[in-house]
Nucleic acid binder design. Structure first.
Length: 276
DNA sequence: ATCCTATCCTGGCTGC
DNA sequence: TGCAGCCAGGATAGGA
């Protein structure tokens, strides 16, 4: 699923193709993708706007818009599980799952594609209203070991649901939660407030290392869904220590990787390396 | 505060 | 080979 490293990869690849472009037209094939706005209202808001800046927050892709040099709202995209993004010249075949196409002033188009219809591409006057209450960016300076240690201290939840909670920390999904917890030697069901300061520091370090390495490899493509905007799969799935490796040997101790369900999510761990 | 369940969707897998 | 049924999963909403 597109999590922080995949969305960051996408943002980096489409940024140079989008920034400075003006939207000249739009085609909406599935209204619900717009998250509540009607097609005409969406078209009125975005057509004629200039894509001033493309950035990422958590798992959200954001494009700040301008009209006549003044701020004019933002496009906020979330790929959920099967969303994909392309910026391509005329003649590109987006396939049967195209949801929204934005025609740009250089003849290319921005394609928003989604098989399962969960992904969203929304317009808002203020991007913050769609981003909600997100926790800190795990790769930013404000996400420190001491912040994490004290944030964990106040929570009684299990570690994994907490890491998946976007209001706690932004951008971590099922894959990188499992990978980070294994690397930190922490059990997904361990209670947050029982993780000590030194263990919290290890978790902090491993979350950042996992995300940074995944970005370096342009994310993970463990199924047919995630591709970069250039159509390439990521390369981090080859580095998975636990995710999707049920029964395979733990890379650290060779015990078989177990699969349990935590908060309705498939969860992978090594019972020997990750004690409660 | 935290947990649980349902909802949204469809390709792909399993079992017969 | 065909087909029914189940499953995954990010976010959110509603109930316990």
């Amino acid at each position: 699923m597109p999590e922080l490293p995949e969305v960051e990869t996408i943002a980096r690849l489409i940024r140079p193709r989008l920034e400075g472009r003006t939207i000249e037209g739009c085609e909406v094939r599935w209204t619900r993708t717009l998250g509540g706005l009607s097609r005409p209202a969406f078209a009125r808001a975005v057509v004629g706007a200039r894509l001033a800046r493309v950035w990422r927050r958590g798992k959200f892709l954001v494009a700040d818009l301008e009209q006549g040099g003044r701020p004019a709202g933002a496009l906020v995209g979330h790929l959920r599980m099967t969303g994909r993004v392309h910026v391509e010249a005329a003649g590109f075949d987006p396939g049967p799952y195209l949801k929204v196409r934005l025609a740009l002033d250089d003849g290319t188009s921005f394609y928003f594609i989604d098989v399962r219809k969960f992904a969203r591409l929304c317009f808002a006057e203020e991007s913050a209203s769609l981003l909600g209450e997100l926790g800190p960016e795990p790769l930013s300076p404000e996400f420190t070991a001491s912040w994490l240690a004290s944030a964990l201290r106040g929570r009684r939840r299990s570690l994994k649901p907490l890491l998946l909670d976007q209001t706690f920390v932004a951008g971590i999904g099922n894959i990188y939660a499992d990978e980070s917890l294994h690397r930190a030697g922490l059990h997904p069901l361990a209670r947050a407030d029982r993780v000590g300061t030194s263990r919290a520091a290890v978790l902090h370090r491993e979350i950042r290392a996992t995300l940074a390495e995944a970005i370096e490899r342009e994310g993970s493509s463990f199924d047919a869904f995630y591709r970069t905007p250039e159509g390439n799969p990521g390369r981090y799935q080859d580095q998975f220590r636990v995710y999707g490796r049920t029964g395979a040997p733990c890379p650290r101790c060779s015990a078989p990787i177990a699969r349990i369900v935590v908060g309705q999510r498939g969860t992978h761990l090594c019972r020997r390396c990750q004690k409660r």
